[in-house]
């Protein structure tokens, strides 16, 4: 009963705080800039079918067309319309970025909370995380991606695994702090189950840093996916992934610069948008890392 009252008032406070956070975000310049960029890209990606062009349709007569009113971004060595391919590439990249962010966020949060709650698991889980961090993330992803085979979902798994350790460490650090708070101590003494403590207290308190980290992972994942595709360990051609288009267009870059130019802009814009979002979220949600707007 006492706990219920505390929780009820806690929820009211939480609701008010959420409202305040929202208002701060709406006034945060880099958050709004990032939000607009990402929103435009998402809409563009969703509108890809509206061009009415098949992204993989080859038209030999229309090869190497520079940007024009018909083919806004020009055409590639097979006469495929690059504007359409870039839009479909947005679908692919954003989907991979989102999937990696969510997957590494969920698994990383689970590992972080578990190791904070169960001290016995902690050293084992953290050594595993250390081991995953031993090699550079992109290298780990290359190795994993290669082993899993050239498919979209192997890229997702590979990148998620590569980014899990940092997320886990961040969540664990936050959960360790929360654990020491008095009301958690009280909850534990009054017999709250581990499950309850983890889900009701540790996880919600880590949600700010977790969201911030996942946003940055989204940005990293977009860049890394493009790099993997470029190396040849991404979604296999003819998938219109941005990295693929650049890799394919590279050998023609001297004459047909446009092939690799626009997908590169798209990658940069997507990563920029997510980084701006992350900066905004961090300023507002993670006061320890306060950086003036």
């Amino acid at each position: 009963m006492a706990e219920a009252t505390i929780l009820a008032s806690g929820e009211a406070i939480a609701a008010r705080r959420r409202f305040r956070v929202l208002r701060k975000l709406l006034h945060h310049r880099s958050f709004m800039a990032g939000f607009i960029i990402v929103a435009v890209m998402v809409i563009a990606a969703l509108c890809a079918p509206l061009t009415g062009v098949d992204p993989n349709q080859m038209r030999v007569r229309l090869r190497f067309r520079p940007p024009s009113e018909v083919n806004w971004f020009g055409t590639d060595q097979f006469g495929r319309d690059l504007f359409t391919r870039t839009l479909y590439g947005a679908q692919l990249s954003l989907w991979i970025g989102l999937a990696v962010a969510v997957l590494s966020g969920v698994v990383g949060a689970a590992i972080g909370v578990l190791s904070a709650q169960f001290r016995r698991l902690d050293s084992l889980l953290m050594r595993i995380m250390d081991a995953l961090m031993a090699a550079p993330a992109i290298l780990l992803a290359i190795g994993l991606g290669a082993a899993l085979g050239p498919q979209t979902h192997s890229v997702i798994i590979a990148l998620a695994v590569a980014y899990i350790p940092r997320t886990a460490r961040i969540v664990r650090a936050s959960a360790l702090v929360t654990r020491e708070l008095e009301f958690i101590e009280a909850a534990r003494v009054s017999g709250a189950s581990s499950m309850r403590i983890m889900f009701k207290h540790l996880l919600p308190n880590a949600s700010g840093p977790l969201l911030v980290q996942s946003t940055f992972v989204f940005a990293f994942a977009i860049l890394a996916e493009a790099a993997l595709s470029f190396i040849g360990i991404g979604p296999p051609p003819p998938a219109p992934s941005w990295g693929n288009i650049i890799a394919e267009g590279r050998q023609f870059a001297v004459q047909s610069w446009w092939i690799m130019l626009f997908p590169g802009f798209a990658i940069s814009l997507a990563a920029l948008g997510m980084n701006l979002l992350g900066d905004g979220l961090r300023d507002v949600l993670d006061p320890r890392l306060k950086v003036e707007s």
């Binding site: 493009a226 790099a227 990295g243 590169g264 900066d279």
Partner: peptide
């Protein structure tokens, strides 16, 4: 700094070769 962490290095590399080398 934001551009630094947002631009894909391999793409900048290719553009750089096109300009500074070619």
């Amino acid at each position: 700094a934001l551009l630094g962490v947002s631009l894909p290095g391999f793409w900048v590399g290719i553009l750089s070769v096109l300009y500074f080398s070619v």
